Computed example of a mutant assay.
Amino acid sequence: MTIKKIDIRNRDIAETVLNIQLASYKVEAEIIGYDDIPPLLDTIESLQQCGERFYGFYLEDELCGAISFKMDKNVMDIHRLIVHPDQFRKGIASKLLTYISALDNIERIVVSTATLNTPAVTFYEKHGFHKEKEEKINEQLSLSFFRKKK
């Protein structure tokens, strides 16, 4: 098991990340009953140009999950936390979140998820995040915004 920074600009890595992302977010779409979510519309090119920092979780040499974020001063904004469905319930998401939370110069971490995505909401609450607000995006989708002081 290894967690390491990955270069999303590398096309092969971006393709692998996209495949995991699509599989992971299809599960979320099923949970929330809405499949028009932005991560399902990503392409290799949009990932390569997203400007996020990515860290990957590897078992042997296989990428099984990834987390990405942007930094704004000392605030880490998590954009994606994805695990391949074949690897669910193995602690990979927790390990990725714990790893990036330990990076230097972070005062606060923010993240959002679909309000109806109970597993994700529970996950973030379990990791010390507090719900700040809820925002209705459209008739089918509402997002919950969480934050955590480091």
Results as ranks from 00 to 15, higher is better:
83 V>C: 10
96 L>G: 05
35 D>N: 15
71 M>Y: 07
128 G>F: 08
70 K>H: 05
20 I>D: 08
28 E>C: 13
93 A>S: 15
55 Y>A: 04
125 E>Y: 05
102 A>D: 13
31 I>K: 08
92 I>C: 05
122 T>E: 11
78 I>C: 06
97 L>Q: 05
40 L>K: 00
121 V>Q: 04
80 R>K: 13
60 E>V: 00
112 S>I: 01
130 H>T: 12
83 V>M: 04
132 E>N: 13
75 V>M: 13
78 I>K: 06
87 Q>V: 04
62 E>G: 01
39 P>T: 02
126 K>W: 01
85 P>S: 08
91 G>C: 09
108 R>S: 14
83 V>D: 04
95 K>I: 08
48 Q>G: 04
90 K>A: 01
118 T>G: 06
88 F>D: 08
27 V>T: 15
22 L>C: 03
72 D>I: 10
25 Y>T: 06
45 E>C: 04
128 G>W: 09
36 D>R: 11
123 F>P: 04
81 L>V: 12
116 L>T: 06
69 F>S: 00
123 F>C: 08
24 S>L: 07
38 P>D: 05
75 V>T: 15
84 H>L: 12
63 L>T: 04
114 A>P: 00
23 A>F: 07
100 I>D: 07
31 I>G: 10
114 A>T: 00
34 Y>P: 01
84 H>M: 10
126 K>R: 12
104 D>L: 10
96 L>F: 08
43 T>H: 00
99 Y>K: 13
51 G>V: 08
111 V>W: 09
73 K>R: 01
48 Q>W: 02
98 T>V: 09
21 Q>N: 12
18 L>C: 01
38 P>M: 06
35 D>G: 15
76 M>A: 06
116 L>E: 15
29 A>Q: 10
24 S>G: 12
24 S>C: 09
72 D>N: 10
45 E>H: 05
74 N>W: 07
37 I>C: 07
31 I>L: 14
104 D>K: 13
98 T>L: 11
56 G>V: 13
96 L>P: 05
83 V>P: 01
96 L>D: 06
24 S>T: 05
89 R>H: 13
67 I>E: 01
57 F>Q: 07
131 K>R: 14
68 S>R: 02
86 D>P: 02
131 K>A: 10
86 D>F: 08
107 E>C: 06
52 E>D: 14
93 A>F: 09
18 L>Y: 02
101 S>I: 00
27 V>D: 15
90 K>M: 11
35 D>E: 15
95 K>R: 15
77 D>S: 11
109 I>R: 09
43 T>S: 00
88 F>Q: 10
43 T>C: 02
105 N>D: 14
78 I>E: 07
29 A>H: 08
46 S>G: 11
58 Y>T: 00
64 C>H: 12
37 I>K: 05
66 A>S: 15
95 K>D: 14
22 L>S: 03
54 F>G: 03
100 I>Y: 08
